[in-house]
């Protein structure tokens, strides 16, 4: 069973349209949603959680249709929103009791362990916590009810590099169970590169690419050359380029590279930036 499936999912707000979105996240895998601000990542997540009604298409989450009546399936979903959204006056301890009342499989010792390991103050009001601690509290809440799917909207934003690394490890551990999956959106592409099996690029509401990460890294490469060599390439093979007064870099498919050329391995961040820049040009 796929953890998430969307087919031609669309949503329009004024002059912004998300989609059509066709995504498939197989169980046991991690998919990263990459996109600039306003690309539609949060809208996509809201559609999957039934917070917003789609204008077209359909989505299923853990086999159930996404929509407002997902009460049963939400027992198996852990969510961290970009601003977490816990009540301002509650402490981590009080929030644990609230979440325990909401989830059938709530594991209080596990929650307390996460809070302890991530150094989250348990007696401070949520509104007085730093952004990093708020996010860590949200992550502890999402991980402590034996969820089968985590949906995370910018969960590593505001975390320092050390904690970010720990959190990324926690997410990796989570998917050791083949029944557990993660959909994660982030600006910090390096985190997604470490973590994800699949990468989906969103740009201005459109899905530019959705592929297995390893396949993306295998299929694409960076050609470093001079401008004359770049101009001589078939424009259809050039998916993105970066020009400086002295040299040029082109993102191309390895199978379309001119014979005898050496391609530099591409990172997910380079792939995304070059694809988006090409689209903007």
């Amino acid at each position: 069973m796929n953890a998430i499936e969307t087919r031609a999912l669309t949503k329009t707000y004024g002059d912004f349209t998300l989609g059509p979105l066709d995504l498939t996240l197989p169980s046991g895998c991690i998919m990263g949603l990459v996109g600039e601000n306003g690309a539609g990542k949060t809208t996509a997540i809201r559609l999957l959680l039934g917070l917003t009604k789609p204008d077209g298409g359909a989505a299923t989450v853990l086999g159930a249709p996404a929509g407002p009546d997902m009460r049963a399936v939400k027992q198996d979903i852990g969510v961290v929103l970009d601003d977490v959204g816990y009540p301002a006056g509650l402490t981590a301890t009080q929030m644990g009791k609230v979440l325990a009342a909401a989830y059938e499989h709530w594991d209080m010792p596990l929650y307390e362990r996460y809070l302890h390991d991530m150094h989250v103050p348990t007696d401070k009001k949520f509104s007085t916590l730093s952004r990093g601690n708020k996010m860590k509290l949200g992550i502890a809440g999402a991980l402590s009810h034996r969820a089968k799917l985590l949906i995370l909207d910018e969960p590593t934003g505001g975390l320092d590099p050390v904690v970010r690394d720990e959190v990324v490890d926690i997410f990796s551990d989570f998917t050791r169970d083949p029944a557990c999956s993660i959909l994660i959106s982030s600006h910090i592409v390096s985190d997604l590169e470490k973590l994800c099996d699949y990468i989906a690029f969103l740009h201005k509401g459109k899905l530019l690419l959705c592929e297995e990460k390893d396949r993306l890294l295998e299929e694409y490469g960076i050609l470093q050359c001079d401008r004359n060599t770049l101009d001589a390439l078939d424009p259809r093979t050039v998916l993105g380029k970066r020009l400086t007064p002295y040299s040029a870099e082109a993102l191309i498919r390895r199978d379309a590279a001119p014979a005898g050329t050496q391609l530099k391995p591409v990172t997910i961040e380079e792939l995304f930036v070059l694809l988006v820049k090409e689209d903007l040009q």
């Binding site: 959680l49 917070l51 049963a72 939400k74 959204g85 009540p87 301002a88 006056g89 989830y103």
Partner: peptide
């Protein structure tokens, strides 16, 4: 207060 802290939205991600 719920709206100010966006708890109304967070609660919608829970089983309710």
């Amino acid at each position: 207060l719920d709206e100010a802290s966006r708890w109304n939205i967070c609660a919608q991600t829970m089983p309710c």
